[in-house]
């Protein structure tokens, strides 16, 4: 992988005093989570996870609580030590890195946002945002300047000398984001950043973050327990269950082609109108004559349904060069909508 910014290979995390022995046994006999717990008194946190995140993309990790997604993401900046496996971040090998380099990596290359904000209540917003620079002994003026810039980007300019508890929840999480961006890192780790907020504020922050992300092009690892959010935010989604990555794919792949019952269960309630595209549901032409009613490849299901509102004649799908590549009947469109 040439342009992978984050890459984890065969990552395992087993908690407990006997983790090394448990690791060997798991590799040999392929034990389940329960067997590891009963035989070694260890908890299997992450099971053989491999994934890579390309530069500039948003990679969502989705799973229910206890599925190991927070554990997995903490391996990237090694807040949690892996039991086995390799971690590469921005061209550096993280799992074998020495403490000073690791601290530098955390301060300069990786910014992190936490579920419950984790802003320090005894520090002003300026001091919170400038912390990553402060621990590297950056002088006060430079820290202040970076903090002003980062807070400005989050529409919090006037608040620099206030304290976190004087802000609302949504504003606090914007401070969290500003803190992660202050050192201008290449990578953002976001651990359920919007889960603790109410739906309207969450939506606003998602939009604000997407806008910012399109501008800054930070490689982002985004944790969420909400598939809707994962689909909105992610270029790719990894679905986790019981410490294992079940499926990795684009939102469309996940929704249209769930790998197993677990993923299918998640996907059930998801609206497909903006996820499914013409080329996914079209059938081959097979000698049929192209109709006048055409639609471009890449058109969303919502646009296809619009075409069937007036009459129910099949649609012909054309690629950007004008060639007919397939056709869609109303039956196919409705089936795709139902899922």
């Amino acid at each position: 992988m040439s342009n992978a910014q984050i890459e984890c290979r065969d990552l395992w995390k087993i908690y407990g005093a006997n983790s090394q022995k448990a690791m060997e046994a798991v590799l040999k006999d392929n034990l389940t989570k329960e067997e590891v717990r009963d035989q070694f008194d260890c908890v299997l946190g992450v099971r053989n996870a491999s994934f890579s995140v390309k530069e500039g993309e948003i990679f969502c990790i989705m799973g229910l609580s206890g599925s190991g997604k927070s554990t997995l993401v903490r391996h990237v900046n090694r807040l949690i030590e892996p039991t086995s496996g390799q971690i590469h971040v921005a061209g550096q090998r993280v799992d074998t890195m020495a403490e000073p380099e690791l601290r530098l990596l955390r301060a300069e290359t990786i910014g992190m946002v936490f579920q419950h904000m984790a802003l320090w209540p005894h520090r002003t917003l300026g001091e919170n945002v400038g912390f990553g620079l402060e621990v590297r002994d950056v002088p006060y003026e430079a820290r202040r300047e970076a903090a002003i810039k980062a807070l400005e980007a989050m529409d919090l300019s006037g608040w620099i000398d206030h304290y976190p508890d004087q802000l609302s929840g949504g504003m606090q999480q914007r401070v969290g984001l500003a803190r992660a961006l202050a050192a201008d890192p290449e990578i953002l780790l976001m651990d359920e950043p919007f889960s603790a907020l109410d739906p309207l504020i969450r939506r606003q922050l998602q939009d604000q973050f997407l806008e910012l992300s399109a501008k800054l092009k930070k490689t982002t690892l985004f944790i969420t327990h909400d598939l809707d959010e994962a689909i909105r935010m992610g270029d790719h989604i990894a679905i986790m269950n019981d410490g294992e990555i079940v499926q990795i794919g684009t939102p469309e792949e996940i929704v249209t082609n769930p790998k197993d019952d677990y993923v299918a269960e998640f996907v059930k309630g998801i609206s497909r109108v903006s996820l499914v595209h013409a080329e996914t549901i079209m059938e081959p032409l097979e000698g049929r004559a192209a109709t006048n009613k055409t639609i471009q490849t890449g058109a969303e299901l919502s646009a296809i349904i619009d075409c069937f509102l007036d009459d129910q004649e099949p649609l012909t799908v054309v690629d950007p060069d004008g060639n007919s590549v397939g056709h869609i009947t109303i039956k196919a469109a409705l089936t795709a909508l139902r899922g």
Partner: peptide
């Protein structure tokens, strides 16, 4: 709060 300490570590504090 453990996440306060974790945040400090995540931003490179010794």
């Amino acid at each position: 709060r453990p996440d306060m300490v974790e945040a400090a570590r995540a931003f490179g504090a010794s």
